[in-house]
């Protein structure tokens, strides 16, 4: 009896190994190569692979709710049109993905709902590699983002506390993502950053990897395997004639959200499709 059980287990192990080997083949056969050649910080310190269905893991994420009025910035400082909730129809984890869904509906006097997740107070870090694999929605008015905020905005209001936008996109420019920094002397329309444009591809039809490597004296931006921008204290000096201040020297926290309308994308039009979902495959943070 014992012998038989042992035998079974050995075969089961073999079966398991083959199963995972074939899974690996499946994954490697169809997906683009995720290996980062532009990123060099490889000590993983925090991640969410969204492996458990249901509400996002409350030990990693909290929600910003409402329209920003409670935070003293109605429209989240940008005249955005959505009301953020933590309802499952706006934010949930399914099949290994975080889903942030923007809907057109009457809710608390607003016409759109969506969600905004942050790691504020749960995970905050200065420097490192921050990376996520994301598919964005499309259409005029959509404004998905993966970004970092300085953790002292309560005492040192934006833009003084700093903002690092790893990925922003406006839905009517489906081939373009942009990365930028905001701080004292360079914020809003005068932020410092750069567009990254895909050729023969779009950001709403498949997943792409968006990341930064952030060290005391530079922030490198990459999309998939392309390093497309480096921002340094010297750049801030040059762009702001010495008026700007490098504030990227303290812990920041992660934010994922889908805004609707607002100053940057403008309002949705009658061609904009609702609802739509931003899918996040993973968020990972590494140290040097």
């Amino acid at each position: 009896m014992k012998h038989k059980v042992l035998n079974t287990n050995i075969k089961s192990m073999w079966a398991y190994k083959m199963f995972f080997a074939s899974l690996l083949l499946l994954v490697m056969g169809c997906e683009t190569d995720d290996t980062q050649t532009v990123a060099t910080f490889n000590t993983l310190v925090w991640e969410d692979n969204f492996d458990v269905d249901g509400a996002p893991d409350s030990s990693r994420w909290r929600f910003d709710i409402g329209d920003g009025t409670e935070q003293g910035i109605p429209g989240w400082g940008n005249d955005e049109l959505q009301y953020y909730t933590d309802r499952s129809e706006n934010v949930t984890v399914q099949n290994g993905f975080l889903l942030i869904t923007a809907k057109q509906e009457d809710f608390n006097g607003f016409s759109f709902t969506s969600a905004r997740l942050t790691t504020q107070g749960l995970f905050e870090q200065a420097y490192g590699r921050f990376e996520a694999r994301i598919r964005v929605p499309f259409g005029k008015g959509y404004w998905p983002a993966f970004w970092l905020s300085g953790n002292n905005c309560a005492d040192n209001p934006w833009p003084a506390c700093g903002e690092i936008d790893i990925m922003e996109n406006v839905g009517d420019e489906p081939t373009i993502a942009f990365g930028s920094v905001h701080g004292p002397g360079f914020f809003g329309g005068d932020s410092i950053g750069k567009d990254y444009e895909l050729t023969n591809d779009r950001f709403d039809t498949g997943f792409h990897i968006f990341g930064i490597e952030w060290a005391p004296d530079y922030i490198n931006y990459y999309v998939d395997g392309d390093l497309y921008q480096q921002i340094t204290p010297e750049d801030i000096d040059e762009e702001t004639d010495g008026q700007g201040e490098w504030v990227f020297d303290r812990p920041f926290y992660i934010i994922l959200n889908v805004a609707i309308g607002g100053n940057l994308p403008g309002p949705p039009n009658n061609e904009t499709v609702f609802p739509q979902t931003m899918l996040v495959d993973y968020v990972r943070v590494y140290q040097q």
Binding site: M18, S22, L26
Partner: peptide, 20 residues
């Protein structure tokens, strides 16, 4: 259970072949 586990790799390989 044993039979069940043996089938998984075959099924997996089948998917690889079909979905490559």
């Amino acid at each position: 259970r044993y039979i069940h586990l043996r089938f998984i790799p075959l099924l997996g390989l089948g998917i690889v072949a079909l979905l490559s």
